[in-house]
């Protein structure tokens, strides 16, 4: 009988107690579905992605959508004022969200967002990094791992040369970016555990 939804992909963390489970789900899908569609549209523009088999495109997107969304929505976690902005536009303090049930995942999201923002990437760098994140997603359901690996290597090489060109005196940036991949994987695992434990009662 949880009365709060602490994921910022909701319009607000407050749940109308008179709303049915189906209604709560429907409202969430209004924000969630367009965000996922945007990830798919982004994936389609990654050079080489559409050449993967359809099965592998779906598998990578299933495994990597959360990680891509974490990167895209990192700015919702504002480290300076310790707030999270929900998709409805309102900000909630870390303490308020903690009282509503947010736990370790929230802390880890702040940590990730702070480190990513600290790298000061421009739009092009962020976009290429996001492409690397998607093709680096879990490969357990992949049919042709060699093709995915080749695409990942190509994108990582492109990211390295872009970062080297733009930040000639900051070679650590590229390494720091690659180290974000395992961080994203553990955020994904934490999120999956919460999702599995989450139930909306009808």
């Amino acid at each position: 009988n949880r009365m709060h939804l602490v994921c910022p992909m909701n319009m607000s963390p407050h749940v109308d107690p008179h709303k049915s489970g189906h209604g709560i789900w429907e409202e969430f899908s209004h924000s969630f579905t367009p965000a996922v569609r945007e990830v798919v549209e982004f994936a389609k523009r990654i050079p080489g992605f559409r050449e993967l088999s359809q099965h592998d495109q779906v598998s990578l997107l299933k495994a990597g959508t959360f990680e891509v969304l974490v990167v895209r929505f990192a700015s919702l976690f504002e480290v300076k004022d310790r707030t999270v902005t929900f998709l409805g536009g309102k900000k909630y303090s870390v303490e308020a969200l903690r009282a509503m049930g947010a736990g370790d995942l929230q802390n880890s999201m702040f940590d990730f967002s702070e480190k990513l923002t600290g790298l000061g990437l421009n739009e092009e760098e962020m976009s290429l990094f996001t492409a690397v994140v998607l093709v680096s997603a879990d490969r357990s359901g992949i049919e042709n791992a060699n093709s995915v690996e080749a695409l990942q290597e190509t994108l990582i090489r492109a990211l390295r040369s872009l970062i080297t060109k733009n930040h000639p005196n900051e070679s650590a940036i590229f390494t720091k970016l690659l180290l974000k991949l395992p961080d994203l994987r553990s955020l994904n695992n934490m999120h999956s555990e919460q999702l599995l434990a989450f139930k909306v009662h009808p």
């Binding site: 569609r37 798919v40 389609k44 359809q54 779906v58 299933k62 959508t65 999956s192 599995l196």
Partner: peptide, 27 residues
């Protein structure tokens, strides 16, 4: 659900978004 992605209907959204493009592709 044993698969968190199924819990959100993620696969269905992804497939529709991917297929949409195929349908729109000119002959």
């Amino acid at each position: 659900f044993s698969d968190p992605a199924s819990n959100l209907g993620l696969e269905d959204i992804i497939r529709k978004a991917l297929m949409g493009n195929l349908e729109e592709r000119p002959e």
